[in-house]
Design a protein around this nucleic acid. Structure first.
Lengths: 212, 212, 212, 212
DNA sequence: CATGAATGAGCGTTCATTCAT
DNA sequence: GATGAATGAACGCTCATTCAT
């Protein structure tokens, strides 16, 4: 009886399947263009090239599609950061790397970037606070780096690591957001360097030069 | 006897009226709790203690209620900033003041703060970009202060005033957002001072050599 | 107590009052422009220069306003016909006169003519068949004239007076309707003569001429 | 076995489908009974035995349902007229045939006949003038026949073909309307003959002198 | 597995009518 | 008598979800 279907490596409607991914991508695109509440399931289905009902074979609900898309993206982000993270030595290099990956997310998938800027905060409250824990994870990593730097005497000890982490995340997110809305493009690496430069050295002119 | 009340009663359905304000407040509360698209007009009406149709005597549409609420809040913010702004002398004091007012907005009206964090970016795309111009105004003011500081030699000239402005806005907004979602309370003045400290001086520990 | 109001000739909200007429005229105008269901009472009130609620002091309902307007117009028509009717001698003159008054209604009050063409048939079914009896009255008058003509040997006896009456009414109403919708103007007297000419003599060419 | 049904099943929600027709019929019935604006979509849906939303799978809007119903009816009328039209020889036969088909429309579908009498003129103003062009088409055909008859010397040349066409249409429409509202039944063929007789020969009794 | 026609609850908005002033 | 703010039922329409095929 099973002969006709042959040997399948995973559940046909599971995360591994091609349609599963096509639906996710379609959802991200459509929602980025029109917003979650103005994106009927039928529009997502059409973009994915499947029937409306098919989506419910792969996902529990429309909410579930968005939730999964965001989860996947964050997970990819965290995985990317973790991977190369340990090969980097100083806190400065580490922060710069995080900033760079954060800023690059725009270039990699513009639709996803838009969606992150427009829907994630919304969703944070209504799709079960789920995205909050991703943010926390991000913040935790940065805090750890900052604490480490403080212990090593590289960073000042009179500023809260939490405040610094939120400032860094917020600063980059706002730059990203601004770029997303205005359509501006930038060099992720250079911008990351600039932000971390400000974060580390401040914007006050060096007294030396002034004094002389 | 009635003479004393005289000119205080403006147009019945105008912005001055008590019901107008009650509807606005109800809308902000409900939308903060449930999100714009999950807040039926009927829910706003109920919270305001009026009939559904009454809302349309005071506002053109559901959109108009949200737009007005946001506009009013931003306008209040800008007005507050502008007022005391010119009495402040150094760029540091000015930035600190902006940061403080921004952070205080939380305390004044928690619902409005939530709404700002969840709906305003959404709105930027779907409610006719109207909130974007408020943000731009904020950024402009900060840029001007930074530029001034650069000309006076107080701030470094090798960082873009735009990047600095966005970083400052983003940093504060994220702190505010985090506080809003976690329910944490903070001292606006102290936090503002801390953020500006980081922005101006960086987090790098001061090297002995320079001090001497 | 009554001194201040002085002696009034009729009920203040009755048909004689000036506001009563102003409301009727406003209703006819607005409904002619927008159609009954697209004409809010508020629009009629505004056109009449009164408050919405005032209309309900003069009429039982919105329906009642339209009903009254149509009734009044028909009554005026019938009165006008009756008056001069008996001074006319032959059936031809009488028919021509009816046709002429019917066609003139357009020129007298264009709004009312539009309303008659667009709303009356609608209303016939839903505002209690009330306009039907006006039509019947019209038809009756014509039938009587035709019957008289038949008895006098002026008209053929082999055609039903009812059919003739409906044909005459329909023909004129359609000409009127066409003029109303296209905005065309015509000479009521000449057109009436033409229609009655066709009705009396037909459109067949006279054999005499052909034969010769 | 199923092969025989084969190509009869067209697009599922297209004009050919059974539900499409059921909705149209229900709409005509309900609107004939209550009038367009007093016929909620829900009432039409209920009569058709479908859910409210289903109507929007087959039609763009409530307007679209009415428009389609009227268009279909007129098209059927025009098609029926055109078909047999060319096999008829004299103008009299042609006019009689048009009158007959016009009058028969009543018997075929009473609801549709009512709707035509009550909503079509309304629609002329508010549903985008779309029904006007059907009327114009009718009038054009009649005018052409009249013109032809005038050229052939059969009809008088001193009456306008337009006036004659409108008179004929109006006369028949009014007979139809009267029958629809009173519920009277008639013999379409006989009535058509009678109307055309009046139109062609008039109602004046033939004078002895001419005959001889 | 896949389909897409069908559902019906829910939405934003309008407006005839009422009634306190 | 006159007002117009307030009401709330009713409307046309959308769309997440289901299920027979």
């Amino acid at each position: 009886m099973d002969k006709t279907t042959g040997p399948t490596t995973a559940l046909a409607t599971g995360p591994g399947s091609e349609k599963y991914q096509r639906i996710l991508d379609a959802a991200v695109e459509v929602i980025a263009e029109r917003g979650y509440f103005r994106s009927p399931v039928s529009a997502i289905a059409e973009r994915a090239g499947v029937a409306d009902g098919t989506i419910y074979l792969y996902f529990k609900s429309k909410d579930d599609v968005l939730r999964t898309a965001i989860d996947t993206t964050f997970d990819r982000f965290h995985k990317q950061v973790e991977e190369e993270f340990k090969t980097l030595h100083g806190p400065r290099e580490q922060l710069e790397y995080i900033a760079q990956v954060h800023l690059e997310s725009h270039a990699v998938n513009r639709s996803m970037a838009i969606l992150m800027q427009t829907e994630v905060r919304q969703s944070a409250k209504f799709i079960a606070e789920f995205s909050h824990h991703h943010l926390v994870k991000y913040i935790q990593v940065v805090r750890e780096v900052v604490r480490q730097g403080q212990q090593e005497g590289i960073f000042r000890r009179d500023v809260s690591d939490g405040v610094v982490a939120h400032c860094m995340f917020g600063a980059i997110d706002e730059l990203l957001s601004s770029a997303v809305f205005t359509g501006r493009v930038y060099d992720a690496k250079a911008t990351a360097a600039q932000v971390i430069d400000v974060l580390l050295n401040g914007i006050t002119a060096e007294r030396q030069e002034i004094r002389e």
